[in-house]
Computed example of a mutant assay.
Amino acid sequence: MIDKNVLKKNFSRNAVNYDTYAVIQKKMAHQLLKTISFEHKDTHDSINILDIGCGTGYFTEQLARCYPNANITAVDIAPGMIEYARKKLRSKKIEFLCADIEEVEINRKYDLIVSNATFQWFNQLEQTIIKLDAMLKNSGMLAFSTFGPMTFNELHRSYKMAADKLNLVIDSLPGQKFFSCEDLLNICQRSLADTSFSYKVAGLEKYEYEYFDTVRDFLKSVKKIGANNSNCDRKTIPALIKEMIKIYETTFTEGNRIKVTYHCIFLTVEKRKTDPV
């Protein structure tokens, strides 16, 4: 379970650092834009777009460039992120809303609902997909990117190895738990089963890698974008962390730098009205 209050504080206080350290999230943003095969809508049409988890507005700005006549609503849970994005994109036709998409009610229909690297922070994923579907127009599309279970694989393996070495029983990992692509496809299909619409659901997986001089540099980079552990059951055991770092730097290095894996997942859900029999 994600502690949303901790999440807000982490991202708000690190808004100024985000664009510098969010290297993988930027790559995901560009891939997500490629994934949106919105062929039935001309890029110059005045469509309505909802951007969930807009952060500093990096992906929002790409959307505004791709769809110059679009009416964009950009939502983020962190006040600091919204303030930063609003200042950066003040010349764009964008409406900013500071809110938790899982809680807020938006009485509007959208042609396109998108989200880059945000769905991993949801506590009620199925219910939220149902909610977003209700906000989609009959021929709309939901497209999002998120992280898969191999993300931070080296960190999690080092943590487990350290716990075993110290004879510690652990019931949580130092980072988020992520759904697989298959899990997400099933969740989408299950969430949308009881409607009068048909859906084309597709998934894409990619791996990205970063390299750091030390594990502490890697953990600092995660903290600098506000993405450090926001689980309600998060625990810190200094001896375990020290041993984990030692194992990580011994076991998972390439060219004298430690390796970090990012498992990136992209999903699209195209909505169509079912023809009457």
Rank of each mutant, 00 (worst) to 15 (best):
I237H: 04
T274K: 14
A202P: 02
G175K: 10
L267P: 06
Y262Q: 07
S196A: 07
Q189H: 05
E182V: 02
K259I: 13
V201Y: 03
I170K: 00
D213R: 03
E249A: 08
K246T: 04
K200G: 06
V201S: 06
T250Y: 03
G226K: 05
V260L: 13
N186P: 04
E205G: 05
K206R: 15
C232Y: 11
T214G: 06
D171Y: 01
L219R: 07
F179K: 08
I245H: 04
S221L: 09
Q176H: 10
I258P: 09
R190K: 14
C181D: 10
Q176N: 14
S180E: 01
F252H: 08
A239H: 05
F252Y: 15
F252G: 02
Y262C: 02
Y211W: 07
Q189M: 03
I241C: 07
S221P: 12
C181W: 00
V169M: 13
V215N: 00
A227E: 14
V269C: 03
K220C: 09
V260G: 12
K273F: 04
P174R: 01
L173M: 14
G175A: 15
A202R: 14
D183T: 04
K271Q: 00
F266M: 10
Y262E: 07
Y248L: 04
E205T: 14
L267D: 08
D183W: 01
V269D: 02
C264K: 01
S180R: 00
K273L: 12
K259L: 13
G255L: 08
A202H: 09
K246M: 04
Y199N: 08
G255P: 07
K242T: 11
E243H: 02
D171P: 04
K224Y: 13
K224F: 11
D183V: 03
T268G: 03
K271G: 01
K271I: 01
K200E: 14
Y209N: 13
L204R: 07
D233N: 15
S221Q: 08
P238K: 02
Q176W: 12
S180C: 02
S191G: 08
Y248M: 01
I225C: 10
G226I: 01
L173A: 10
I225Q: 04
V260S: 15
A202F: 02
F266C: 03
I258A: 13
R234M: 09
E205D: 10
I258L: 15
E270H: 00
A227W: 09
E243P: 06
V169L: 10
N228F: 11
P276R: 02
Y199A: 08
E210N: 11
S230D: 10
T274I: 12
A193I: 11
D213E: 13
I170L: 01
Y209K: 15
I187G: 04
K235F: 10
K235Q: 15
K242M: 05
T253N: 06
A202Q: 13
L267V: 15
Q189S: 11
T250G: 05
V222R: 08
L219N: 07
L204V: 13
F218M: 14
K223T: 11
G255Y: 02
L267Y: 03
